[in-house]
Amino acid sequence: MTALLEIRNLTVQYGRINALTDVDIDVSEGEIVSIIGPNGAGKTSLLSTIAGVVPAAGGTITFRGEDILRLPLEESVRKGIALVPEGRHVLPGLTVLENLRLGATIRSDTPEVRRDIERFLDAFPILRERRNEPAGRLSGGEQQMLVIARALMSRPRLLMLDEPSLGLGPQIVDKVYDMISDTRDQGVTILVVEQNARRALAVADRTHVLNGGIIRLSGTAETLSGDPDFEAAYFGLRSVADG
């Protein structure tokens, strides 16, 4: 099976801090892969580097067989990679509709864009109701739906989500994860990072545990939850880090 996204020996540094060290990850077409790890593990650095926001100090990132490591960040979406960043980042002063339209910046098929927008407004009546209001006035959950929909407006092959459940109540998190599963069912490959291990394990085909910038453990929800090293890997206890 050829990987859609292939990451090898990826190292990311901020000055002298190593945020990621020799990370290897493969994501195949149609999969949901999740990365879990505590605060400061390097999750955001990983997604930011794939999207081109943060430069890599070493290693390779290949997407559909093409080296994308040094692309300017506005090109990654043109290659088919969409990032929903940590903290959502709606454009708060622009309306809900304008946010959705911006999601289609790279597309020129205007009638199709309109149809896609209608589909999202049908799927989320609250967004339709508030389509002409500034997006900054939406609740956290509504903003999360909006930014995922906005990312999908580019019709990506790979959707990356950085802590989509952060700061949301349990029912809203259910909705967000339903949306993630639905998106995969429509053929979009997904890479999601979370501190919220339970959700990210349940939704994913495969999960990596990241801590201190190093992948400590990898497996499926079943193998990982049965693994005696799981908690130690997640919480970064020395025995696993060194062994």
Binding site: A51, V53, P72, L73, E74, S76, V77, R78, A82, L83, P85, H89, L91, P92, G93, L94, E98, R101, L102, G103, T105, I106, R150, S154
Partner: peptide, 21 residues
């Protein structure tokens, strides 16, 4: 104009959506 307003609000996010800096 939409791209300019977006860039004014959050430049990095706009670039992630494909707005060319």
């Amino acid at each position: 104009g939409l791209e300019m307003r977006a860039a004014a609000e959050d430049f990095t996010m706009s670039r992630l959506l494909g707005v060319r800096a």
